[in-house]
Amino acid sequence: MLMHFQFKPLFTNKNIPGWNFSFYYKKQRYTGVYHQTGKIEWSANTPEQADMEALSSQVHELMLYHVYE
């Protein structure tokens, strides 16, 4: 389960898509960039392959809910 999920626009012009995000998972902080296409670029502490698909899916769902709602 993701904890303390946060996001903010990449650019000061909020009409340009792209967001920085961060969250905690298993007491580890993860950060990345979420692109308009749904692509995720992990910035720090790339998740292990076993968790990658589940975490990417959760980030995608949260971004759809918060940004595109």
Results as ranks from 00 to 15, higher is better:
12 T>S: 12
58 Q>V: 13
11 F>G: 00
61 E>Q: 14
38 G>E: 02
7 F>E: 00
48 E>Q: 13
7 F>T: 00
21 F>S: 07
63 M>Y: 12
67 V>W: 01
8 K>T: 04
12 T>R: 12
27 K>V: 03
49 Q>T: 11
38 G>V: 02
54 A>Q: 10
15 N>R: 13
57 S>L: 13
40 I>R: 01
56 S>N: 15
67 V>I: 13
63 M>A: 11
42 W>S: 10
48 E>N: 09
39 K>I: 07
62 L>H: 12
2 L>V: 14
2 L>A: 08
29 R>P: 08
48 E>V: 11
26 K>D: 05
48 E>M: 10
41 E>Q: 08
1 M>T: 15
2 L>W: 12
6 Q>E: 09
42 W>A: 05
24 Y>M: 08
34 Y>G: 02
15 N>V: 06
68 Y>H: 10
56 S>Q: 15
19 W>H: 04
58 Q>D: 15
30 Y>I: 01
65 Y>F: 13
18 G>E: 06
56 S>V: 05
11 F>A: 00
55 L>C: 09
9 P>H: 15
52 M>R: 12
39 K>N: 07
53 E>V: 06
46 T>W: 09
48 E>L: 11
18 G>I: 05
68 Y>G: 04
62 L>P: 08
51 D>K: 03
58 Q>W: 05
65 Y>H: 10
45 N>E: 00
17 P>N: 12
36 Q>Y: 08
17 P>R: 14
56 S>G: 14
44 A>T: 00
24 Y>T: 09
15 N>P: 02
5 F>C: 01
55 L>E: 10
6 Q>V: 03
28 Q>W: 13
7 F>G: 00
1 M>K: 14
45 N>S: 01
29 R>N: 12
20 N>T: 14
37 T>R: 10
27 K>C: 02
14 K>T: 07
52 M>D: 07
31 T>D: 08
16 I>E: 06
63 M>P: 09
34 Y>E: 04
9 P>Q: 15
13 N>T: 02
61 E>V: 09
68 Y>Q: 11
50 A>E: 04
23 F>V: 00
55 L>P: 11
32 G>Q: 05
18 G>Q: 08
49 Q>P: 09
51 D>R: 04
36 Q>A: 11
35 H>S: 08
15 N>K: 14
26 K>W: 01
24 Y>K: 09
24 Y>C: 03
69 E>K: 10
23 F>A: 01
41 E>F: 06
30 Y>R: 00
31 T>A: 09
35 H>T: 07
47 P>G: 15
25 Y>C: 05
5 F>H: 02
45 N>Q: 01
15 N>W: 06
27 K>W: 04
3 M>A: 15
26 K>A: 06
23 F>H: 00
53 E>A: 09
43 S>P: 01
16 I>N: 03
36 Q>P: 01
43 S>N: 09
4 H>Q: 08
61 E>C: 08
47 P>N: 12
51 D>N: 10
46 T>H: 07
46 T>I: 06
31 T>C: 09
36 Q>V: 03
60 H>E: 11
18 G>C: 05
32 G>A: 06
37 T>S: 15
15 N>L: 12
38 G>Y: 02
14 K>S: 03
66 H>G: 11
58 Q>I: 13
53 E>N: 02
35 H>P: 04
